[in-house]
Structure formats: C-alpha cells, structure tokens
C-alpha cells in the first residue's frame, strides 16, 4: 500500500488534527489550574486521546468496509473491530489509572465510557443502517473536534464557554468538509467500493450543498462568538480568525454559486482545508 493511500484510508491527518485540538483544549482551559496538573494533562491527554481517535478511525473503517462472509472465524473486519476495541480499552485503562491514582475528575472516565458505549452500538448496529454515512461523518467530525472539550475537561470540569464554541466551529467545518467530499464522489460518479450510500447520495447533491452552506455559516458564527465571550488572547486570535472566516466565507459563496450536480469544483474544498488550518492557528494563538 502506498503511503498516500495509507494516509488517506486510515485518515492519519485526522489522528493528528484531533490530537492537536486536544492539546489546544488543554491549553485553553489551564488558567486556574496548577502547573503540574496542566503538564500531566499535556503529556497524558494527547496519548490518551490519540488512542481514542485511532480506535474511532478503525470503527469508521469497519463501517466503511464491505461486510465479508461470516464463514471465516476471523475476517478482516473482525480484526479491525478487535483492534479498535482493544485500543479503546487501553485508553480506558490508562484513563482509569489517571483518574483514580492521580485524583483526576471522574468525568474524564465517564465521558470515555459514553464514547465507548457509542462505539459499541456503532459496532453492533452501524452496519445495519443503510444511511450509515451520516454516522461515519458524525464520528469523524466528533473525533476531530471533541478533543477540544475533552482536553479542557482534563484540566477542569467547568469548561470555559468559548471552548464549546471552538468545538462547534471545528465540528461544523469538519462535517461540511466530509459532506463536500461525498458531493465530489457522487458528482464524479466514482465507484463506491464501500457499498454504502454516501451522504450526498442520500440527500441529493443539491441538498447536501445547502447543508454544507448552512454548516459553513455556522462555522463562521462559531468562530466569531468566542471573541465576544472573552478568550485568553483575543488579540492574537483575531488575525487568523478573520482570515479563516474570510476563507470559509468565500467557500460558502462559491458553494452557493456552484452547482456540483453539473461539475464539482475542488477549490471549495481547498478553501475549507485552508480555513481549518487558520482555525487551528487561531485556537492555538487564543491560548498563548
């Protein structure tokens, strides 16, 4: 397998993106937290969440993969499932040690437990859902963005309000990116090897574009609101936030103007990807 294919299939970029957002979550909620506590979270948090992301991406891979014959006792899907569960349990075990030995708040474990239950249901019933691409997109969007809240919770249960907006901003942008991807695949009439309906196929490309537009507007909104709620370094946040908002705004306008049913335009996706980069920078700057 070529590296590029591997990176694409296993969504390596999302592993790191999610981990970076967790670090940003830890950084943005550290101001009433002891230095040692913060450093512990900065080291252990990303390790922990990285495992959660890997297990989540494997879940996505499981959902995407065509279901093999059940005659074989250990087929490819089962291996993926087992590895995903094992990695998740390792993350859970580490967090249990973290919570009980180091007196971290129990929410660190409870939230992981809720994610675990969600993973479990997805493994059990996800493949039976015809419109599972929605589930897949939600899981990816969640994995990438939830690190912000999880990182913040590692520090303190009372998460600053703007971290929730940060989370919403990333989630909506990631979601819109993934829907756009499905538009691309549908528009280019690519063979869907995964044998499941893509999001754009379910709702039609036109509606998908409308949803993307709505998500982009929401992203811009969620980018601007934290500025009002009082973030730590609003001055440094401002510049990349404005650039990001402009890029996403242009993407939204183009999205409105283009009709992907006729021809898919890759520049919208590129603009959103650049917007995501700006968001990462903005959120990091907000915590300096």
């Amino acid at each position: 397998m070529k590296i590029k294919t591997f990176v694409g299939k296993y969504q390596l970029i999302n592993w790191f993106k999610g981990t970076i957002f967790l670090i940003i979550g830890v950084l943005n909620s550290r101001f009433d937290v002891g230095y040692n506590w913060f450093i512990d979270n900065l080291i252990l948090g990303p390790t922990l969440y990285f495992l959660v992301i890997v297990s989540g991406i494997l879940l996505v891979l499981f959902l995407k993969s065509p279901q093999e014959s059940t005659e074989r006792k250990l087929n490819k899907n089962k291996v993926i499932k087992i590895i995903s569960i094992v990695i998740f349990l390792v993350a859970y075990g580490i967090s249990a040690v973290y919570v009980f030995y180091f007196d971290r708040n129990i929410f660190v474990l409870i939230i992981l437990g809720i994610i675990g239950v969600f993973w479990g249901f997805s493994f059990l019933y996800g493949n039976q859902w015809e419109e599972k691409s929605i589930l897949i997109n939600v899981i990816i969007g969640f994995l990438v963005s939830f690190g912000l809240i999880y990182g913040a919770i590692l520090n303190n249960v009372s998460v600053p309000i703007y971290v929730y907006f940060f989370f919403m901003g990333v989630f909506t942008l990631q979601f819109s990116k993934d829907i756009l991807k499905s538009c691309k695949k549908t528009a280019e009439k690519r063979t869907n090897t995964e044998e499941y309906k893509l999001f754009a196929e379910i709702v039609t490309i036109k509606k998908a574009q409308h949803i993307v537009l709505l998500l982009q507007v929401l992203t811009i909104l969620f980018l601007v609101i934290p500025f009002i709620t009082g973030i730590y370094n609003s001055f440094l946040y401002l510049i990349p936030m404005i650039i990001g908002a402009i890029l996403i705004g242009i993407a939204a306008i183009l999205n409105y103007l283009y009709n992907f049913e006729e021809e898919y335009k890759g520049r919208v996706f590129i603009l959103l990807r650049s917007g995501m980069l700006c968001i990462i920078i903005a959120y990091f700057f907000a915590s300096i």
């Binding site: 291996v79 087992i82 590895i83 094992v86 349990l89 390792v90 075990g93 580490i94 040690v97």
Partner: peptide, 20 residues
Amino acid sequence: LIILVGILVLMPIIISVTIL
C-alpha cells in the same frame, strides 16, 4: 493476536505502574 492484545493492554498499565 493474543500477544498483540497482551502488549496493547498490559504494557501501558505496566508503564503507568512502574514509572508514573
């Protein structure tokens, strides 16, 4: 597979216990 699982499950716990 058992060895893999063993490594994944036990190693972090052992490391946590011995180092942290």
